[in-house]
Design a protein around this nucleic acid. Structure first.
Length: 459
RNA sequence: GGCGCGAUAGCAAAGCGGUUAUGCUCCGGAUUGCAAAUCCGUUCAGCCCGGUUCGACUCCGGGUCGCGCCUCCA
């Protein structure tokens, strides 16, 4: 039972071994809370939530930290536009984020650190970098001196000169070298700021993750995750800061990055105006459908998000829940998930598409089977799906929804089904069909079987 | 200019040097008062050109096309 993970730093799959046996420390970059989150923000959360679940099945202790960035220039701008305090705005959107992530069936991380709670630690790290000669002060800024670190650029696999050649951004005049990045920058009186040895100011973007990891997880962690776009500059710079502040100690053993989400084949971007907010999607689809869609491709691949993908995901879940509905009165057997093909697929760098195909295989076997093996199959499918955060619901709830949300009175539906049952016994098929039509008009679809008649809400 | 990724059937998406991926759709069959669900089956693959091999969708080389990053970014 070996977990293999693709490590961005080495660009290959490796056997995962935690630093401390039976204990894993994982950190994932969370959102900057200045708006609702879009589907691109949700992908790493779902991916690493799945990894979190797999890790917990393998190790006695898994500490999973996912931060909230609650100080940032984008937040400052949004607060100004909203005429709202930064603290209020970031707290509001942090709460919305938690709500959306819960709707996508993500577990709470072990730790949710906030950037603004760690300014002291950030200042201490900047001081350490200055002391060790990896940073310098210039015009009230503190900058990281990338040339002081011999293997800067190793994570993103690029050389300093190559980076500057393609740079799209003008180099600030106070930088000794164009690639140097800001650790601390001054704040004007109207901007939020904290007192520091270099005057009132605020931290650079990369610093918070380094400081929070140092405080909560230590100098070396097992896994650091995030979107592919964070490899450079964010993670490269985080790595540089932390490693240099700690005298060269390895910062992260396994770097993991998920691929992008495209919308109808195009990159999701502000200029195209094609952002998909999780909140909007949740109005049209259950969170589980969105989660399923995100897991339907391998996490390192690009994923094209579209209405067709969501419809297909819903159809797949209908099929899986259909099998569960058949065995809803069967008590699931306790199973050893380790033997499951689903587990094997997930251990291979989170091969969720393959794991999902194994889910379908189990569903088919449930549909075909009768008798005692159903308990075993039910146990297997639930345990396997649980590793991905899927199929947690009562199948009746899946198909029939929540009466308060659908406005459908289950008792009334049941009464009509009973009446139709009698009509069928009386061979009064005209009446039976009329009842079917009546319910159909309400959005209720009937399914007759040997066990009786079940119903579901039409999508 | 530098670094990197990808191309699989109508659509989505995996594994694999040889033997069914899987899901949705289409078609046929079983079942069915009707309808659905379910089961069985069929059809439809591997961008192009070489090479290695008994055998290549899979490995290697070269093209073509598409995409990403190079200091806002999931």
């Amino acid at each position: 039972m070996t977990l293999h993970l693709y490590n961005t730093r080495t660009r290959q799959k490796e056997i995962f071994e935690p630093i401390t046996p039976d204990s894993v420390k994982m950190y994932v970059c969370g959102p900057t809370v200045y708006n609702l989150v879009h589907i691109g923000n949700a992908r790493p959360v779902v991916v690493f939530d799945t990894l979190f679940r797999v890790l917990r099945s393998l190790y006695a202790e898994v500490i999973y930290a996912r931060n909230i960035t609650d100080i940032d220039d984008k937040i400052m701008k949004a607060a100004r536009e909203n005429n709202e305090s930064i603290a209020d705005l970031s707290a509001r959107y942090a709460a919305e984020y938690q709500k959306d992530m819960a709707a996508l069936l993500n577990l709470e991380p072990t730790i949710t650190p906030y950037a603004t709670h760690h300014v002291g630690e950030m200042i201490a790290m900047v001081e350490a970098l200055l002391q060790r000669g990896h940073a310098y002060v210039a015009e009230n800024h503190v900058l990281f001196d990338v040339k002081s670190m011999p293997d800067y650029g190793r994570l993103s696999n690029r050389s300093l000169d190559d980076m500057l050649e393609g740079a799209r951004v003008e180099v600030a005049p106070y930088k000794k070298y164009g690639g140097d990045f800001v650790l601390w920058k001054p704040s004007s009186d109207s901007e939020p700021g904290w007192d520091s040895p270099w005057g009132r100011g605020r931290p650079g973007w990369h610093l918070e993750c380094s400081a929070m990891i140092e405080k909560h997880l230590g100098h070396t962690i097992d896994i650091h995750g995030g979107g592919r776009d964070l490899i450079f500059p964010h993670h490269e710079n985080e790595l540089a800061q932390s490693q240099c502040a700690h005298g060269g100690t390895e910062y992260v053993r396994y770097w993991m990055h998920n691929g992008y989400i495209n919308i109808d084949g195009e990159k999701m971007s502000k200029s195209l105006g094609n952002f998909r907010w999780v909140r909007d999607l949740l109005e049209q689809f259950p969170g589980e459908v969105i989660r399923f869609a995100l897991l339907s491709a391998h996490y390192r691949s690009e994923l094209d998000f579209s209405a067709a993908l969501l419809e297909q995901s819903r159809a797949s879940l209908d099929s899986l829940y259909g099998a569960l509905r058949k065995v809803k009165d069967v008590e699931a057997a306790a199973v050893d998930v380790a033997a499951s093909p689903i587990y094997q697929a997930l251990l291979d760098d989170l091969n969720t598409p393959l794991a999902i195909s194994a889910l379908h295989d189990l569903a088919r076997r449930i549909n075909k089977s009768e008798g005692p093996e159903l308990a075993q199959l039910k146990g297997e499918i639930l345990a396997g799906a649980g590793l991905m955060g899927l199929l947690p619901r009562d199948p009746d709830v899946w198909f029939q929804g929540d009466a308060s949300a659908t406005g459908i009175d289950a008792a009334q539906v049941e009464a009509l089904i009973a009446e139709r049952q009698q009509a069928k016994l009386d061979k009064n098929y005209a009446r039976a069909d009329a009842i079917r039509q009546e319910l159909k008009a309400m959005g209720v679809v009937l399914e007759d079987s040997k066990q009786g008649t079940t119903w579901k809400i039409e999508n």
